[in-house]
Simulated scan of single mutants.
Amino acid sequence: MIRLFGRHPYVMSILALSLCLAMFFAGRFTLRAIYWEAHRQEPVAAWMTVGYLGRSWGLDPREIDRLADLPVPNGGPLTLEEIATIRSVPVTQVITEVEAAIAALLAEQAGATKDGKP
């Protein structure tokens, strides 16, 4: 290996860098896969964003926004608590609306799979 590095330093440096990058992205992928496997179908809480809920439940966050009549995020994501503050309603009301939207989307998915559609 040392002889190869001595003969072809640029090629071996590129190979070493490529291996380091591959290990970095493989580790990142593995950690995310483990995290989301453990956080599937999390109960709705005030600290969550619609994007987090969409990822946790495997649903489109914009569909959750549409069904729950939530504002589309403008800039950074908003937590359900922040949405409740903006709308001047209790956070429990927003949570109930989001839970109903999730249930409707899950029922829609279940109906689509029964009909033979993906």
Rank of each mutant, 00 (worst) to 15 (best):
M1F: 08
L4P: 02
L4F: 12
F5Y: 13
R7D: 11
H8K: 15
P9R: 03
Y10G: 13
Y10T: 10
Y10H: 09
M12V: 07
I14Q: 14
I14W: 13
I14L: 11
L15P: 01
A16F: 14
L17V: 12
L19Y: 06
L19K: 08
C20H: 11
L21R: 10
L21I: 07
A22F: 14
A22C: 14
M23D: 10
M23Q: 10
M23P: 05
F24T: 09
A26N: 11
G27N: 14
G27M: 08
R28L: 08
T30R: 14
L31E: 15
L31F: 15
R32P: 00
R32D: 11
I34K: 15
Y35T: 07
Y35R: 07
Y35V: 03
Y35L: 04
Y35F: 15
A38W: 07
H39V: 03
H39Q: 10
Q41A: 15
Q41R: 15
Q41S: 10
E42I: 11
E42V: 12
E42N: 13
E42R: 14
P43Y: 07
P43D: 01
V44G: 00
A46I: 01
M48W: 06
M48Y: 04
V50M: 02
V50T: 12
V50G: 02
G51Y: 12
Y52L: 13
L53N: 06
G54C: 08
S56T: 06
S56N: 07
S56C: 10
W57C: 04
W57G: 01
G58L: 06
L59M: 12
D60G: 00
D60T: 01
P61N: 06
P61F: 00
P61A: 09
P61G: 06
I64D: 00
D65L: 10
R66F: 04
L67V: 00
A68M: 01
D69H: 14
D69K: 12
P71H: 09
V72C: 04
N74I: 09
N74L: 13
G75A: 12
G75E: 07
G76I: 11
L78Q: 09
L78P: 05
T79C: 04
E81T: 08
I83T: 02
A84C: 03
I86T: 08
R87Y: 04
R87G: 02
R87C: 01
V89T: 03
V89H: 03
P90I: 01
P90G: 02
P90A: 08
V91Q: 02
T92R: 15
T92K: 15
V94P: 06
E97Y: 01
V98Q: 02
V98P: 02
A100V: 01
A101M: 00
A103T: 05
A104G: 04
L105A: 03
L105M: 08
L106P: 02
L106S: 09
A107N: 12
E108P: 00
Q109K: 14
G111C: 09
G111Q: 12
T113N: 11
T113K: 15
T113S: 13
K114Q: 14
D115L: 13
G116D: 07
K117T: 04
P118V: 10
